[in-house]
Computed example of a mutant assay.
Amino acid sequence: MRPVCVGDYEALAREKMEASHWEYFQGGSGEEQTLRANRAAFERVFFRPRVLVDVARCDMSTQLLGTPVSLPVGIAPMAYHCLAHPEGEVATARAAGAVGALTVVSTFSSRKLEDVAQGAQGPLWLQVYCFRRREVTEALIRRAEAAGYKALVLTVDTPRLGRRERDVRNGFSLPAHVRAENFGEELVAALHARQPGASAVATHARETIDPSLTWESLAWLRSITRLPLVLKGVMTGEDAARAASLGIEGLIVSNHGGRQLDGVLPALDALPEVVRAVAGRCEVLMDGGVRRGTDVLKALALGARAVLVGRPVLWGLAAAGPEGVGHVLSLLRDELELAMALAGRPSLDQIDSSLVHAP
Rank of each mutant, 00 (worst) to 15 (best):
E323A: 15
D334L: 11
A98C: 09
R163C: 01
A189F: 11
L300A: 03
Q63T: 13
R222N: 13
R169Q: 15
Q127E: 14
G27Y: 01
A151C: 05
S199L: 08
R166C: 10
G184Q: 15
V275F: 04
V90L: 10
A176N: 04
V278A: 07
L342A: 07
R143S: 13
R291M: 00
R133Q: 15
A343C: 15
L342G: 03
A200F: 09
V356D: 14
S354N: 04
K16D: 00
S223W: 06
F42S: 01
A189P: 00
G97T: 08
T155F: 03
G119P: 11
L331R: 08
Q195H: 15
E89V: 06
G326S: 13
A318F: 03
E23W: 12
D115K: 05
Q118T: 14
R164I: 07
M60V: 11
G280M: 13
V290F: 01
L154P: 05
G148D: 09
V284L: 09
R2F: 00
N255Q: 05
A306K: 08
L161D: 11
P322L: 03
R94I: 00
P346N: 13
P175T: 13
S254T: 05
E273Q: 14
G326I: 01
A41W: 00
A244R: 03
V253Q: 01
L308G: 00
C58W: 02
G100D: 07
